[in-house]
Simulated scan of single mutants.
Amino acid sequence: MIRWVRLSSVRLPLGTPVSDAKVLTGRQRPMSEVALLFAEIATDDGHEGIGFSYSKRAGGPGQFAHAKEVAPDLIGEDPSDIGRLWTKLVWSGASVGRSGLATQALAAFDIALWDMKAKRAGLPLAKLLGAHRDSVRCYNTSGGFLHTPVEELVENASASVAGGIGGVKIKVGHPDRGEDLRRLTAVREQLGDGVPLMADANQQWDRPTARRMGRAMEDFGLVWLEEPLDAYDAQGHAALAACLDTPVATGEMLASVAEHWELIRAGAADVIQPDAPRIGGITQFLKLAALAEHQHLQLAPHFAMEIHLHLAAAYPYEPWVEHFDWLDPLFEERVEIGDGRMRVPRRPGLGITLTEQARTWTREMCEIGRRP
C-alpha cells in the first residue's frame, strides 16, 4: 500500500532565454526557466516510483498546489490500480475540470505509479508496456529557436547530426516570411537532402498564411510542418493537410485525450504530438495512442524525452522522439543516442534518478504520510 508521497516544485533555469514565434508576435515573453512538479511515491513494502509534470512561463505553483490538495487520497491505496487511482484523483478535484492544470498536476502521480510498476517487474517501462523496438528515431529542437542567428542555427544543426541525432527541427513564424525561407534554405543546404528536417510555426499563422507558407516550403522535403495554426483549429488543420504534400503535425498544446480526439476525428493531423504530462500522464497517453494507431497516424511526442522514449517505443508504427537537453541537469542518467536513434534504457522503470542539483532548485516541497 502507498504510505508516503513527496511533492517538489522545481525551477530549472535555462542558460539562454529562448524565443519562438509566440514571442515575436508579442503573445509571450522569452522563456528563461521551466517549472517542474516531481512526485515521489513509496509503499509499505519498500517500492518507490518517481514522476514529473512541468509548465513553461506560468502554472508551476498552481500545479504544485493542486497536487498537494489531492495527494492525501493516495495514502493507503494499492499502487497497482493505476487507472482507478487516476479516476479517483480526477474526482477529488472535479470542480476544476478534467484537463489543463488540474490533470497536469495528476500526471506526476500517474507517471510515478507507472515507474514503480515497471520497477517492481524489473523491467524498463517500454518493456512493461510491450515494446515494438529498442530504439526510436530522434530529432533535435533546442538548437533551432528563432532567437538563434542563422550562422549559429546552421552550426547547431550540424552538431546535432554529428552527435548521432537523426533529424533537425527549426522554428519558423518570423514576421518576415522570407527570413523563414532563408533560414530553412541555409539549414537544408548545410545538411543536404538526406537528413530529416522539420519546421515549427508554434500556432502563429492564420489560415491564408499557413497555406502560402506551406506551399513555399514544399520543396524542402520536410518530414512535417508543425503547429501552423491555432492548436484548437481542427478544421483549419484538416483543410491544410488536404492541400499540402508536406505532412501536418500538431497536438502538443492540447490538454486531454478528448481534445486530441477532435483533431483525429477531423483528419487534422498526419502526425499527432501528444505530451504525456500535459494530458494527465501515461494512463491517458495510452488511450490516445490507441486512437492514433486506429487511424494509422504517425506519433511524435512533445518534449520530456525521458518519459516519451518509453511510450514511443511501445507504439506500433515507427515514431519520432524530440531531443531536448534542457532537463539533463535534473537527472543522474543520460539517454544514449547514436545512428540517428535514441535507445531505450535497460534500467527498470523510467530509469531516472534526481540529482542533488535538482534538490537545490526546489522552491517548495511537502510530504504526505510517512516514508517506510
Results as ranks from 00 to 15, higher is better:
residue 13 P to N: 11
residue 17 P to M: 10
residue 27 R to T: 04
residue 30 P to R: 11
residue 31 M to H: 06
residue 37 L to Q: 02
residue 44 D to I: 03
residue 48 E to V: 13
residue 51 G to R: 13
residue 56 K to Q: 14
residue 57 R to V: 14
residue 59 G to W: 06
residue 61 P to G: 06
residue 64 F to G: 07
residue 78 D to T: 03
residue 78 D to W: 06
residue 78 D to F: 00
residue 81 D to V: 10
residue 90 V to C: 15
residue 101 L to I: 15
residue 104 Q to E: 15
residue 104 Q to H: 09
residue 116 M to K: 11
residue 117 K to D: 01
residue 120 R to C: 11
residue 123 L to W: 04
residue 126 A to L: 02
residue 133 R to I: 05
residue 136 V to H: 05
residue 138 C to E: 03
residue 148 T to P: 04
residue 148 T to E: 12
residue 151 E to F: 05
residue 154 V to E: 06
residue 156 N to V: 01
residue 160 S to Y: 14
residue 163 G to K: 01
residue 163 G to T: 07
residue 166 G to P: 08
residue 173 G to E: 00
residue 182 R to P: 04
residue 188 R to L: 10
residue 202 N to P: 07
residue 203 Q to L: 07
residue 205 W to C: 00
residue 206 D to E: 02
residue 218 E to Y: 08
residue 219 D to V: 06
residue 220 F to H: 11
residue 222 L to Q: 12
residue 224 W to F: 15
residue 233 D to Q: 06
residue 237 H to T: 00
residue 242 A to M: 09
residue 258 A to T: 12
residue 260 H to R: 05
residue 264 I to H: 05
residue 267 G to I: 09
residue 268 A to P: 00
residue 274 P to S: 05
residue 278 R to A: 11
residue 289 A to S: 13
residue 294 H to M: 13
residue 296 H to D: 13
residue 298 Q to K: 10
residue 299 L to A: 06
residue 306 E to D: 08
residue 308 H to K: 07
residue 309 L to D: 04
residue 309 L to A: 05
residue 310 H to E: 01
residue 311 L to V: 10
residue 319 P to Q: 02
residue 321 V to E: 01
residue 323 H to A: 12
residue 323 H to M: 12
residue 327 L to Q: 11
residue 331 F to G: 09
residue 336 E to A: 14
residue 343 R to Y: 13
residue 348 P to M: 12
residue 356 E to L: 10
residue 367 E to V: 11
residue 371 R to T: 08
